[in-house]
Simulated scan of single mutants.
Amino acid sequence: MKKSVKQLVKEANSEIETLSVEEARALYGQENVTFVDIRDIRELEREGQVPGAVHAPRGMLEFWVDPESPYHRDLFANGNRFVFFCAAGWRSALATKSVQDMGLPNVCHIDGGFGAWRENGGPVEERKPRNG
């Protein structure tokens, strides 16, 4: 193996903006700031979610960001600041680096992810399980 996951995350973190939970909470609820949860849907159902956050599954994120993709979501072309998070900050670091490399401006992620958000008193709500 040429690079471990830890190495990839370390490299990503050296090139992206990482917010502390306190910095993220200061942005939460501001106009033109979109929180993006990249966790798996089962994690949201099991652990809850940040109220108002957009769910963009990690496996679809680049496709949703790319305006040339048939899966593009206009949300990612609205000029907002995007705050990504996952469970612990590893997937969101890689995702932030990836979309930054694609040209998405004004993107960052939360150090420690949803776990740190919840532990530090960030708002969390229950997500109802999917039907079917």
Rank of each mutant, 00 (worst) to 15 (best):
I41R: 11
N106T: 06
G29T: 05
T96W: 00
G121F: 09
G79V: 08
A24T: 08
R91G: 03
H109N: 15
V33N: 06
E45M: 10
E45H: 01
R25V: 06
Q7C: 01
P105Q: 13
M60S: 08
T18G: 10
E125K: 11
I41L: 10
G113N: 00
Q100S: 15
Q49G: 05
P67W: 12
D37E: 03
P51E: 08
G89M: 09
E126T: 11
T34W: 03
D37G: 00
F114P: 00
N32V: 05
A93G: 06
R130T: 08
E11Q: 13
M60Q: 14
R118A: 11
M1A: 14
F35K: 07
Q7D: 14
N106H: 11
E126S: 10
P51T: 06
S69T: 13
K6H: 14
E22W: 08
S20Y: 05
G52W: 06
I110E: 05
S14T: 10
P123H: 07
E22D: 13
Y71H: 09
V107L: 04
T18D: 04
G52M: 07
R58T: 00
V107D: 03
T34V: 15
E22T: 13
E62K: 09
S98I: 07
A24M: 06
R42W: 12
V9S: 13
V124Q: 14
N80L: 02
L19M: 05
L94V: 07
M1Q: 13
C108T: 15
G113I: 01
E17F: 01
V9K: 05
Q49K: 09
P129N: 06
P129T: 08
N131M: 14
F35H: 10
Q7L: 11
I38N: 02
K10R: 14
K2C: 12
L8D: 06
K2Y: 11
L8A: 13
R58Q: 08
L75F: 12
K97C: 05
T34Y: 04
D40E: 11
L8V: 05
V107M: 01
E23A: 07
L19E: 09
R118M: 03
